[in-house]
């Protein structure tokens, strides 16, 4: 089934785009997202995360999510019941791609599928914004 993208405001936290630096080397980037649902949810109920940088889709296996004080790789979250994507606290989405982002402005797309028992599956809600990287080589 094809992903359906539904645009909505307020998903991307402004000024949250940063490079991840390890041992002085840029190894990836991160940004903060608000949950596109009207309540916090166990991470197991997150169906998918689609991050686009300048039009290119980031493979899910590069993504990890930090929320409620814990970090999980994308491949791990389908069993996470007791850690929530909290309502009032954005989740940190980290992408480790061994290069990070170049200095300047990037077009960022961020869409999240939440699995709600009374809603049809496959709908990714989110938005696109021009964002400036806060720290870059």
């Amino acid at each position: 089934m094809d992903d359906v993208f539904e645009k909505r405001k307020f998903v991307i936290c402004e000024e949250s785009l940063e490079n991840v630096i390890q041992d002085g080397k840029q190894i990836g980037f991160s940004l903060k997202l608000r949950i596109p649902e009207y309540r916090g949810l166990p991470l197991a109920l997150i169906g998918g995360i689609r991050i686009f940088i300048d039009g290119n889709l980031i493979p899910e296996e590069m993504i990890s999510i930090t929320s409620d004080g814990a970090t999980f790789k994308w491949s791990e979250i389908s069993t996470v019941r007791s850690v929530y994507w909290l309502y009032e606290e954005p989740a940190l989405i980290t992408v480790i791609d061994n290069k990070g982002l170049s200095k300047g402005t990037h077009k960022v797309g961020a869409y999240v599928e939440v699995r709600i028992s009374y809603m049809p599956p496959g709908i990714f809600a989110g938005e696109e914004r021009e964002m400036e990287v806060r720290n870059a080589d």
């Binding site: 009207y38 309540r39 916090g40 929530y84």
Partner: peptide, 13 residues
């Protein structure tokens, strides 16, 4: 209230 909406910092669990 929707509990997972208003209870802060993991208080729902």
């Amino acid at each position: 209230a929707i509990l997972e909406q208003v209870l802060p910092k993991g208080n729902f669990m």
